[in-house]
Computed example of a mutant assay.
Amino acid sequence: MGNVDLLSSVLAKTGDVVEGVRTDQLGLPTPCDTYDVEALVNHIVGWLQVFEAGRHDRSYEGDAKDYRCGADPAGEFRSAAAGLVAGWEEHGFDGQVGVTGGKMPAEQVFSMTVIEFLTHGWDLAVATGQPVPFTEQEAEEVLARAEATLPPKFRGEGMPFAPIVPVAEGASAVDRMVAFMGREPGARPESSGPESS
């Protein structure tokens, strides 16, 4: 799968999960301990706009952690997703891309992007009782990027990423991917809501 196809597919599926969130689910917990559903949606949409601005050599105005969605989070997500995909198509994968004040190699930023949105798409789907939409091929490709991008020094208490969760031999690529990102593949947050089982 080509880079643009991978990104486009992951973002389209994550956008569908964002659209599937009901208003009565906004206060539910998620596998990402620091966020409830509403905060995770804000995080997802805000950071997508950061990545979109960077790929177009613009500075994102403000701080993504302060971003709050309007009445149509899925629409905001899809608009930024279309702009981001167009940016990669136009500018390619060479050179540097600016994100949050610094510049990094374009391929590294791309890897960060697909890792971010597959992982949080999974978080949001699990939290709201939606089917996890990502394919094994997508998960394998994103996992390979995650393994090459996230060194052990960034894991553990006080670090951005949790330790890798062990999985059984023969686990699916999706399970191996989220376990690499510190999630329990079979876990479901408590209080997932009446229609979320």
Rank of each mutant, 00 (worst) to 15 (best):
L6H: 06
D57Y: 08
G15K: 06
V97D: 05
M181K: 02
D33R: 14
G95L: 08
Y60H: 12
C32P: 08
G92F: 10
E107C: 01
G27Y: 08
V21H: 05
P166I: 05
S79I: 00
G27I: 13
T135N: 06
A71Y: 00
A127F: 04
A171Q: 07
E107L: 13
G87M: 11
F110S: 00
V114Y: 03
V132M: 07
A144I: 02
T100V: 12
V17C: 03
S111W: 14
V109Y: 15
C69I: 14
A74S: 13
H91Q: 13
F117E: 02
C32I: 05
F77C: 10
L150E: 04
L143Q: 00
G170D: 11
V37I: 14
L143Y: 01
A71G: 14
V165P: 05
G20D: 06
E136T: 01
C32S: 15
P131M: 04
T30I: 09
G121I: 05
V18E: 05
G27N: 08
G92V: 01
G87D: 12
A125V: 09
V142R: 00
T23H: 00
V37E: 00
V21T: 09
E136D: 13
A82T: 13
P163K: 13
R55S: 08
S9D: 14
A171S: 15
G46H: 06
L118V: 05
V109T: 08
A171M: 11
R58T: 13
D57K: 06
P31R: 11
T119L: 12
D66C: 00
V142D: 02
P73R: 07
F161W: 14
T128N: 00
V21G: 06
D123R: 05
D24M: 02
D33V: 15
R22M: 04
T135P: 03
G83K: 06
E141K: 00
V37S: 04
G20N: 09
V142M: 04
D33S: 15
T149H: 14
C32W: 10
R155G: 04
F180Y: 15
L124T: 12
V99C: 06
Q108D: 02
G75Q: 11
A173S: 14
E19W: 01
N42K: 03
D175I: 03
T149I: 02
G121D: 05
G75W: 06
K13M: 11
G101T: 14
R55V: 10
D24P: 03
V174D: 01
M177E: 02
E52C: 01
F117H: 09
E184V: 10
Q130L: 13
V174R: 01
A168K: 15
G98I: 12
R176C: 02
S191L: 07
